[in-house]
Every structure is written in structure tokens, then in C-alpha cells.
Design a protein around this nucleic acid. Structure first.
Lengths: 193, 193
DNA sequence: CCAATTTTGTACTGACCGATACACAACCAA
DNA sequence: TTGGTTGTGTATCGGTCAGTACAAAATTGG
């Protein structure tokens, strides 16, 4: 047909994701994105149309990646309570490994809220899927008797997601791992049987 | 001595605060700040030195205001558990009244992390004071037997502050008041006797 | 080898960024 | 009234912003 790409599109999205993740949407310039991806301006705009469109791509990429990892933990072995504990441990480890950048979705929600465009849609979709995943785990926990009954799974899922967000913000302000583990433990104590 | 100011400095800080609060630090331009405060560029720079310095002023102003309000609730009447419940109710009402802008401190933490300057110092100071206030309330709750014993007040304070941050993010993504109340209630159930 | 098609590099666009220079207006002390 | 001092308005600074124009380069099917 014509001249082929000289780069891997997914790898470029991944690189752009790290740039946005580290600096936030507004503070990341198109120049930053070129340097992060190694692409020229032409290639960036030819492939991704605009800064916002590329950001939306990175968001959905981040979301899919994060959901897959979380799903692997929440559908793993052990009781639902065990799996939730593992999820929190994983989150804290992740923060320590990734320089306390927080969660791209949480950071974006705080910076932009839910904008009335595709970015907002991506944020909403991620939230819905997180809640669905957590809600399913809660339902399983009621059955395996590791989680308390009495609240709707949806409410407990909201509580867990809120705790996740709280931990992400906590990490962002540099709280100690011990403090974060204590918070996760206290949150778990509210839902375990 | 010389020509007097034609504006109230505190009122200008308050206006700038709302601009930063609504749009975030990076997305708020000096032009926005001039329009929000009603001042000319000269007056802004003559009075506040730089955009960042003005932002730091708005942060400390916001923090002092928020801490005063929270202190009034947490040192009010009733058991410690009652006061914590009132705090959460107040937070949710506040979010609904203020167009789900979240908390300026939480939004800034998510957007900037803890920068190595006076802004970072202001963020740290606010966190410390929030934790101190919450910790004191927890200590009182152990004494009046409305709160569970067994965790250190510092850990419980971290949990409560994390829940507050979580609720702020939750509000930012447009969660329903019912869902937020359910989260606050579940968090309270983890700490009440 | 040649057209057709797409990617790439370079240069550039107008707009806006944060910040400043400077003249002038407005006040106070004397 | 005058001199000193400070606030204000206007015009502007160099730099960077997101985005584009366009020609050269690289590939395919014919």
C-alpha cells in the first residue's frame, strides 16, 4: 500500500501514558509527548489526532491494564476477604514501586472532574467496571462467609473503591507504607465477617 | 505614606482560590486570575509576586478556612462518633453545594503531588493539622466510649482522612449522595463502638 | 521503473503563557 | 504645594502552547 510505520503504536501509547501519569494532563505538553514516545510531531498528530485524543487512548489503555491486574487478584485463590487484602497490598506495593504517582484515573478525576467528552466517558467506564469487579467479589465473600452481610454489595463496592482512591491520595502526599497498611486493614475490618 | 490599595487583599485571595479550585493549578492562567479577582496584572504581580506564590496564599487560606470549619464540628456537642458523622454529612452537603469541585488540597495533591517548594509545605501542613484534629477527636471518642479502642488514634485518624479523600474523589466523579452517605456510614461503622 | 499512498522531518502558524517595563495616577508627610 | 512613595493601566517581553503545511522519504501494487 504505502510507507509503513516505524514505531509500535501500543508502545507509543504506553510511553505517553507514563508522561501523562507523571505530570498530569495540563502540565504535559505535546513536546513532552514527542520526547516520551520518541516520535516526531507529525507522527503523533497523524496517528493520534490531538493531545486530548491521545490522552483518551492512554486512559483506556491504563484502565484496561489496571482492570486486568485487579481482576487477576480478585478472582484468584482464597476467600474474598483474602483477595481484597491482597488487592490492597498490591496497591501499596505498586505505589512504592512507581514513585507515588498515584492512580492515573484518580489523578485525572481530581484534575479535570468528569469532562463532557470522550475522556469523561473513559473515566466513567473505568469506575463502572471497578465497581462491578468489586461488587462481584463482595457477593462471593458473602457466600463464602468471609465478608459481612447486611450491606448491599454495591454500597460495599463503593466503600472499597473510595478506600482505594483515599489510599492513592494518601500515597501522593507521601504517607508511610505502615500508615497505608493500617488504613487498608481498618477498611477491611469494616467489611470482613 | 503613599497611594492606598483599591481592593481588599483577602477578598482577592478568596476569588483566586475559587478560580484555582474550579480549574486546577495548571489550567488557571494569570489572565483567569485577573478576571476572577477584578485586578489588573500589575496589581496581581505587585501584591502576590507570582502565580505560584498566589496559589500558595490561596492554599493556606483554603486550609485555614477548612480547618476552622472542621474544628467547629469536631469540637461541637455530642459524642465523638456523632461529631464524626456530622463531619461526613457536612462534607457531602458541601460537595453538593459547591458543584462537586472536590477539595482543593486533594485536587492539588493529585495534580502536583508534594512539590519541593512552599506549595508542598502548605499541603504537608494541612495534612498534619487535619490528622491532629481527627486524632484528638478519636482520643475523645475512646474516652466517651463512642469509638472503638484497639487501634492507635493516629491510625484511625489516617483512616478517617483517607475516607475523606476518597469521598472527595467520589464526589468528583459524580457519585450519588446516597452512595456517599453509604460510604461514610460504612467507614464510621469501622471505628464506632 | 513507475505511479499511488502513507509516514516522516522541518519549519512554521497564531494564540497564549507567565512576567516585566514604565508612565502616570493617587495618596501622605512636610 | 511639593517631594517621596506606592498602586494601577497599558503595552510588551521572550518563550511555549497545540496544531498544521508541505516537501522529502519509504513503501506497495502494477
Amino acid at each position: 500500500m504505502a510507507r509503513p510505520r516505524e514505531f509500535d503504536e501500543t508502545a507509543a501509547v504506553e510511553s505517553a501514558m507514563h508522561a501523562f501519569w507523571a505530570r498530569g494532563y495540563e502540565a504535559t505538553s505535546t513536546q513532552d509527548l514527542c520526547e516520551a514516545t520518541g516520535l516526531g510531531r507529525s507522527s503523533v498528530y497523524n496517528t493520534f489526532t490531538s493531545k486530548k485524543a491521545l490522552f483518551q487512548r492512554t486512559l483506556t489503555h491504563y484502565s484496561a491494564q489496571g482492570l486486568a491486574g485487579r481482576k487477576a487478584v480478585l478472582e484468584g485463590p482464597g476467600t474474598a476477604a483474602d483477595r481484597l487484602a491482597a488487592m490492597f497490598d498490591g496497591l501499596i506495593d505498586d505505589e512504592l514501586e512507581h514513585d507515588r504517582r498515584g492512580c492515573l484515573v484518580v489523578n485525572t478525576l481530581a484534575e479535570l472532574g468528569i469532562p463532557d467528552d470522550e475522556v469523561g466517558e473513559a473515566l466513567r467506564r473505568d469506575t463502572e467496571q471497578q465497581l462491578a469487579l468489586l461488587g462481584e467479589c463482595v457477593r462471593e465473600g458473602v457466600l463464602d462467609r468471609s465478608l459481612r452481610d447486611g450491606r448491599t454489595p454495591a454500597d460495599v463496592a463503593e466503600f472499597l473503591l473510595s478506600t482505594i482512591s483515599g489510599l492513592r491520595v494518601m500515597s501522593r502526599r507521601g504517607a508511610s507504607p505502615d500508615a497505608m497498611h493500617a488504613v487498608a486493614d481498618l477498611a477491611l475490618s469494616a467489611v470482613t465477617a
